[in-house]
């Protein structure tokens, strides 16, 4: 066998062996700093607690809640049907599986805005488009939905409508929580993105 062949074989081995030493690849498209900045200054990422309450009551399948607080906080109190992904495990595969569900918008929430906002920025950098933040977090949730303040007598009618909605939601959540306390944490059902299927067999 010609010596040149051994050089070529060596080249193949080096090329394929080099694959093993490649640094871990970032398998998502990074957002440029400018567009990230524009996304951050836009207030459109915020969803009010009232909207979230409505989504939960209506069981809207297009939204999922992701709670980024530590798991002990999540155990103590959580919104119905929310997933718990603590912020330090947001880059794991399990978290990716949840974000990856097609056509489902993700709403981040934490005690206040800050942790959820941080999670939102990370998710944006990972390339997920339909991610939102629950404005005010769970503190605001308690203030507005669970213990709504009765508006003053002279408040406009819309205030009263909102109050009535919140009052109803409060009964819904506090009542529902008592009865279904045990199965709040749902099993995470994962549907990965389907592979592109080509019409017919290869050959």
């Amino acid at each position: 066998m010609n010596k040149n062949y051994f050089i070529l074989f060596g080249l193949l081995i080096v090329l394929s062996g080099g694959l093993l030493f490649l640094p871990e690849k970032t398998n998502y498209v990074q957002q440029s700093p400018e567009s990230l900045m524009w996304d951050i200054v836009q207030p459109t990422r915020y969803i009010s607690t009232d909207q979230v309450a409505k989504l939960i009551i209506e069981k809207d399948p297009l939204f999922q809640l992701v709670d980024v607080r530590p798991d002990y906080d999540f155990e103590a109190f959580s919104l119905p049907n929310s997933f718990n992904i603590p912020i330090d495990s947001i880059l794991t595969d399990e978290a990716n599986d949840i974000f990856n569900i097609e056509d489902v918008n993700t709403i981040f929430l934490s005690d206040d805005d800050i942790k959820a906002d941080q999670a939102w920025v990370i998710a944006k950098r990972m390339g997920y488009k339909s991610v939102y933040v629950m404005k005010g977090g769970l503190n605001c949730w308690i203030r507005t939905i669970i213990q709504p303040q009765k508006p003053s007598e002279s408040a406009p009618i819309t205030e009263f409508e909102l109050y009535n909605f919140r009052k109803g939601a409060s009964i819904y959540f506090t009542g529902a929580e008592l009865s279904t306390n045990s199965d709040i944490k749902q099993e995470v059902s994962i549907t990965r993105k389907k592979k592109e299927t080509v019409a017919e067999g290869g050959c």
Partner: peptide, 9 residues
């Protein structure tokens, strides 16, 4: 990647 390497060998 590892499989590719083994296959090449």
């Amino acid at each position: 990647k590892l499989f590719t390497f083994i296959f090449v060998i």
